[in-house]
């Protein structure tokens, strides 16, 4: 059953957007999977995109990260138009993306994974300082520096992905289903890590199937249906919405 369209887009009430997407459409082989999406994420904010399988959630993030070439629309990063930039230039400008599933390099050590997180940093001293900062932030990883990433637990691998991404110190962090495959306790740790990043001024945009827990950790939510944003609202409002609960939280 479709959700009635009642979009609440309060762009004016938000602080300046870190990430701003306008009229984004994207797809594969001529078929548009994401259809005219507008969204904003402000610094310090966690925004979660929810929706059923096939709604276009992953495609939306991949299109923003420019991992998907077939797309139209406009993307602004901290005010600058970055629509045409390739993935690595976006990363250099402060837009990072952690794709779905395990994206660590399994046979590189934790230290090598972190070093690759800073592949685009040519300043060796800065790179070292950034890696050390991440090892301070994730002490479990510091103890496993020389361990191949494949030998880490699922939660540690997710920590490593986040730490590796934060080596670039991005302003905007996008994550595709960060809680997938993790034990409930670890899911809580991941979401609290993301809240911590937001508190430090990062803009966080994620896609989640674990809707209730994700919204509990979010400021706002966007409901995606058949490639369109059906509903955007404060996370607390979505959590209290009986239709959202029935359709996406199995309740």
């Amino acid at each position: 059953m479709p959700i009635s369209a009642d979009p609440i887009v309060q762009t004016s009430a938000l602080p300046a957007s870190a990430l701003s997407v306008r009229n984004l459409s994207a797809g594969y082989a001529g078929r548009m999977i994401v259809d005219g999406i507008d969204l904003d994420v402000a610094a310090g904010e966690v925004v979660t995109i929810i929706g059923q399988n096939g709604a276009g959630k992953s495609t939306l993030l991949r299109a923003i990260a420019h991992l998907l070439r077939q797309r139209t629309g406009a993307i602004r990063l901290r005010g600058a138009d970055v629509t045409a930039l390739p993935t690595e230039a976006l990363l250099q400008r402060g837009l990072a993306f952690i794709p779905q599933g395990r994206s660590i390099f399994p046979r590189l050590t934790v230290a090598e994974n972190l070093r690759m997180g800073g592949f685009l940093l040519r300043d060796a001293a800065l790179l070292r300082a950034r890696i050390d900062a991440q090892l301070d932030a994730f002490p479990a990883l510091a103890a496993l520096r020389e361990t191949p990433a494949a030998n880490l637990s699922g939660g540690q691998q997710r920590q490593l992905e986040i730490a590796r991404t934060m080596v670039m110190d991005p302003a905007v962090l996008m994550l595709d289903e960060p809680s997938i495959g993790l034990a409930p306790l670890i899911v809580g740790q991941v979401f609290s890590t993301l809240r911590g990043l937001a508190a430090a001024g990062k803009a966080v945009l994620m896609v989640e199937q674990n809707v209730r827990r994700a919204l509990e950790a979010s400021d706002r939510g966007i409901v995606l249906e058949l490639g369109r944003a059906k509903l955007q609202d404060h996370a607390s409002a979505l959590l209290g919405d009986e239709r959202v609960a029935r359709l996406y939280m199995g309740g």
Partner: peptide, 23 residues
């Protein structure tokens, strides 16, 4: 070396290599 590790990284997961900025 940075490039050598990047080669190994790309061989293990090409999508992950792209998201860390390895072309």
């Amino acid at each position: 070396s940075r490039l050598g590790i990047a080669m190994r990284a790309a061989s293990q997961d090409i999508q992950a290599a792209r998201v860390v900025g390895i072309a």
